[in-house]
Structures are given as C-alpha cells and as structure tokens.
Design a protein around this nucleic acid. Structure first.
Lengths: 192, 192
DNA sequence: TTAATCATGTAACACGTTACATGATTGC
DNA sequence: GCAATCATGTAACGTGTTACATGATTAA
C-alpha cells in the first residue's frame, strides 16, 4: 500500500491535483518509488472512496480543468497509523528482487567475456545514476521552499539522498571486485 | 519475465519437478528472487504451453505422484536469447523500489525518536540478514555437488553471494551514519 | 508548425500474493 | 497422536505496466 501512503504523505504538505502529485513523485520520490500517471489517478479514486481524500473540481479557462485533492481527518489518521507500524516494510527491505542478479547467477551458461561485459555495463550505469543523484540535494532545497516546516522535513529527505550515495558506491565496488575475479582468476586456482 | 527464465535456468541443470524447483528457489535463488509454490506451478503450465518445457507424470506408490519437467530445444533457445539481451534488466537494476525509504522520507511527520528507532531496527535486521547470508557459500558447494560443470557455475553463484555481503554492509553503514546525524544534530545548526 | 506543458482518465494485461483444497507417508 | 515432508494445484485479489484517448495553450 506504499503508493497510497506516499500520496497521503505528499497531500499532508498541502492540497494538490493528480498532475501535481505525479510531478512531485517524479521530482522527489522517484529515486525509490515511481508510479505511472494512470496508476496515480486510479489510486486517488480508490482513496477518495475510502474517505481518505476529498476532491474539488476547479474550472479554468486558460488551461484544462483540474481536480484538487485534499487529505481528510480519516486520511491523516491512516497516514499516522502507517507511520507507526513500519515492521512489515523493514522486513520487506530485507528481501531484494533483482533480475540482474538472476543473470549473474546464470552467467555460467554463457562465456566469461559476456559476464564481464555485463558487469562493466552495470558498473557504468551505476556511476551514471549516482552522478544524476547528486542533483537531488539541490532539488530538495528548491522543493523545500514551497512546503511548510521544511527545515525539519528536509533533514529526512536528505537521508534518503544519502542512502543513494552509499548504495551506488557499494554496487560499483562489488562490480569491480567481481570483474577483477573473472579477469584475474581465469586460469588460476585457489590453494587451501 | 525473470521467474520464467529462472526456472529455465534451473531446468538447464537437469529435469526437475515443480516441488524441486520450488526448493531450489528457496535454497539458492531466494536471496534475490522468491516465488510462491502456486506461482511456480502456474508459470510451469504457461511455459509448457509455450513449448519451452515438456512434462511427464511419474506414478509413485510410496509418495504422491509427481510431474517431472524437462527443458526443450525451444526452451534452451529462449534461455540463451534472454542471456544475450541483459540491457532491460541492467536498466531496471538502477531503479529501486523501497517502501522503507518512503517511510524515511516522511519520517518528519512523526518525532525524531521514532525515526531513530526505525533506523536502529533496520540496521539490526540488516545485520541479522547478513549473518544468515554467510551460510550461502556452504549451501553453494553442497548444491554444486549435484550439478554438472559445477566448478564453472559456482564461480557465478559465489559472485551473487558476494553481492549480498557488500549490499548489507553498505546498508548498515548508511543507517549508522543516519542515526548519528539524527542523534548528534538535534540541537545543532549548520553554519555556512 | 511542431513540440512541450497542462490535465485527466479507461481498458487490458502481466505478475505476485493470499487463501483455500487435498491427502499420503515418515519421524518424534 | 502430531508435525513435517512430499506433491500439486485453483480462485480471487492487489499492484504495476502498456496502450490508447482527448484537447487546449504557449514558446521555439
């Protein structure tokens, strides 16, 4: 149910349209959660039926009409309840799901050269992604200006950005170690 | 489509039943991919309809009857094709999805003490999981004994285990750094 | 004139989870 | 006697993706 709670969290900063929520996801949560516009609109519908939100149609003449969502008391309770019961998500964080590692596992079915190429491409992408992530702190301070109590909140936003730095650094280190093993150890034997 | 290709990969080691595939997932791929038995049986059905597998019913008197799956030529082609087109999975590996980080992002909605507790519990779980993961190399050598060409293959299995070590180490380091920031910086200010 | 931005959706499909169902044998 | 292991599935539901649909305004 994280998308629903992510939307609630954003709406706790203030009322927004589906379009703005979509943009907020892209600009601030996109590093660890993404959602297609179509899914966001669907979830907002469900959440309104749950009584977590209310919506108001705003007629515009210069632009297309829009629908502004606001969090209700019930929605705020739901958000608080979610924040107080993190155990499931902590457990879930312990179980990764990686099609890439599945490929590494079965890379023995092809040749070492292909596996090395796979790992090099992976390391390259990690470096690119880490580079792109370094723009996040700037995005945070910009975004923070628009939201109340930003001092307190941006502290946590920065922690998620810091996570990204650590994460990609570790990924790259592993990939390089793996490449070294495959390149160096091709005709060597471990003596115990 | 990774579950399908994971099953193909395991069946490329030799014919197996759905039950054995389920166990193989649990014992060797479970660190980066899990599947419920019901899903495995459903996928095997689909894969047989695709012509990637054939199955044969084996009547047993001492135990329940079983159904042994074997990879076909078409299935082997599918597996090879998958191994040669990794780009999508590399790209997918760059986008994480973490409900836990969503919680960290919105942790400003509660108090610092709750956030610190969240991070401590996370770090603890990471340490436990990393500990459990250290048993994987043993499981690999045991499993390797049952499979042909194990020397070559186990090299790659070990790389995925090594990934786990790096990964949890980085997670713990980040969490500790985050805790230190929240604990130490509570009434401090950054002077620029 | 062409692309981007604003703005909201529907329908179908793919993948994963949960709950349920069955029933024999073997070890404690 | 009770739990674990062996062995296979169905049905319903939840979540995420893809493809499609519409149509105005504004800047290059």
């Amino acid at each position: 149910m994280s998308l629903k709670h992510g939307l609630l969290g954003l709406l706790s900063y203030g009322a927004m349209t589906g379009y703005e929520l979509d943009a907020a996801f892209k600009s601030s949560l996109s590093f660890f959660w993404r959602a297609k516009s179509s899914q966001i609109y669907r979830e907002l519908d469900t959440m309104e039926k749950n009584g977590w939100l209310t919506s108001e149609r705003v007629i515009q003449t210069d632009k297309p009409n829009k629908r502004v969502y606001s969090i209700t008391g019930e929605g705020r309770e739901e958000l608080d309840g979610w924040l107080q019961t993190p155990q499931q998500d902590i457990d879930a964080a312990m179980s990764m799901r990686s099609a890439f590692l599945m490929r590494v596992f079965f890379a023995g079915e092809t040749d070492d050269a292909s596996a090395i190429a796979l790992l090099k491409e992976f390391a390259k992408k990690c470096a690119e992604t880490a580079e792109a992530l370094s723009a996040v702190p700037a995005s945070i301070s910009q975004y923070g200006g628009l939201i109340g109590d930003a001092e307190r909140r941006s502290k946590y936003w920065a922690l998620t950005a810091m996570y990204g730095e650590h994460y990609y650094k570790a990924e790259i280190e592993w990939a390089q170690k793996a490449i070294a093993i495959l390149e160096g150890g091709a005709d060597e034997h471990t003596c115990d």
